[in-house]
Design a protein around this nucleic acid. Structure first.
Lengths: 225, 225
DNA sequence: CGCAGTAAACCTGTCCAACAGGTTCAACCG
DNA sequence: CGGTTGAACCTGTTGGACAGGTTTACTGCG
């Protein structure tokens, strides 16, 4: 389903370099040619990754000089950072907190049988993806989107879709896709989603809203240890 | 300062094509080669733009098939809307209820002086427009948007912008422009907004959230008695 | 005439070699 | 010692090339 492009790996690889080599803000990255050689890909691929990194506000390229760290992925996640400097990506969690919690509540209140089946299907897909140790971002989003759809209110899907690209960015930046997740993390993520789905199935509005809030809170905590 | 790269122009150009040619979600974009020829740049530049477009959730590339519109930038769903028009538009109020109430709360909590001035300015513009007996939808939206901006969290503005086209539609549909509003309605709308702004000024989070909820509740009641 | 199968045309993903023009830094000259 | 210059290095961009997936249209068979 989600085909992995080399530039995705390069993106993750560069983020990994910034983190592992502990490059400070303003530090210079290896040149495009060196990165290409390191990852065993062409310079064009590295460039596509760098363009996205720059568009995500993580790096900055200066012609003739090189690419530089603009803000470290982990630091943008810091809770104490003033909101004015907070990236759109992290801020999106703040919106999801109220938006998706309300969606879960409404979904539990007035879901139809068909919508419930749709949610269950999304849960099954996520379970499968998580257990296969693949990066399950797409399936994760899909389940959340199905829950938003179960409110029967298209406006929720619209607001959700407007937010998701940013959520995805932070996921890509924060998660090392090269390393497989430990089993207990997979199980935790599964259980969190299952509790939400169960509450919607049982038509328990407060339970669904609480479970969703808890899941988002834990998710954000996972991204900034 | 910020040097303009060709890929930035290509990015803007592709967005322009989606808007001007009115490409629906799922529609296919011209091929990379054609886009390159159109913009007078190389295919690599177009690719860098497309990679960013995809990362922003606007397009989606399928190998061998082409690139497709995934969601239309900003004015999603603005022009053409499915049948369930009324329910969609009214449904947006449900989202605004949680979204804007939270925005008002956060704005009251952590607004800067500059953001507050921005909000006051929006209030002044709305007051002027309302007293001149013109339909003040644009000014109304503008004030709400400034409040969302005062959270310091760009994600709120994004979610807000995704919703607004629907809200505007129902406003236009529900209000009879030919008849001028009675003075007491104008005064009520002014007072509701002023209470919200005052609470944000006083840095009273709960008051701001409550006032916003009340305003939205009344607004919906005004539209469908 | 209808349909299945296949081949051609087209498309994205990736690589390579090359050049233009900006930046850095150290050696050299006054 | 200070300033200038030049070489080395870097990003920005190009054109061509090939692999492999998708779409389309045509061909030949039933």
């Amino acid at each position: 389903m989600s085909q992995i492009r080399l530039s995705d790996q390069a993106y993750a690889g560069i983020v990994e370099i910034i983190k592992s080599e502990d490059l400070e803000v303003g530090a210079r990255l290896p040149s495009e040619a060196k990165l290409a050689e390191t990852f065993g890909v062409s310079r064009a691929i590295v460039r596509e990754a760098l363009v996205r990194l720059a568009s995500d506000g993580i790096t900055e390229a200066r012609r003739g000089a090189g690419s530089f760290v603009k803000s470290r992925p982990s630091e943008r996640l810091a809770a104490f950072m003033p909101m004015s400097e907070l990236s759109t990506t992290l801020g999106s969690y703040e919106v999801r907190f109220v938006l998706e919690a309300e969606a879960a509540r409404l979904a539990a209140t007035r879901r139809t049988a068909q919508e419930m089946a749709h949610v269950e299907e999304g849960m099954a897909l996520l379970r499968e993806a998580l257990l296969s140790s693949e990066p399950a971002h797409a399936e994760d989003m899909d389940l959340h989107r199905r829950i938003a759809a179960a409110t029967g209110n298209p406006a929720f899907i619209q607001a959700f879709d407007a937010l998701w690209p940013d959520v995805e960015k932070i996921m890509r930046a924060g998660v090392d896709i090269s390393r497989s997740r430990p089993p207990e993390v997979v199980e935790t993520m599964l259980r969190e989603h299952e509790v939400i789905v169960a509450a919607i199935r049982a038509q328990d509005p407060e339970g669904a809203a609480l479970a969703m809030r808890w899941h988002l809170w834990e998710g954000r905590r996972r991204l900034m240890p």
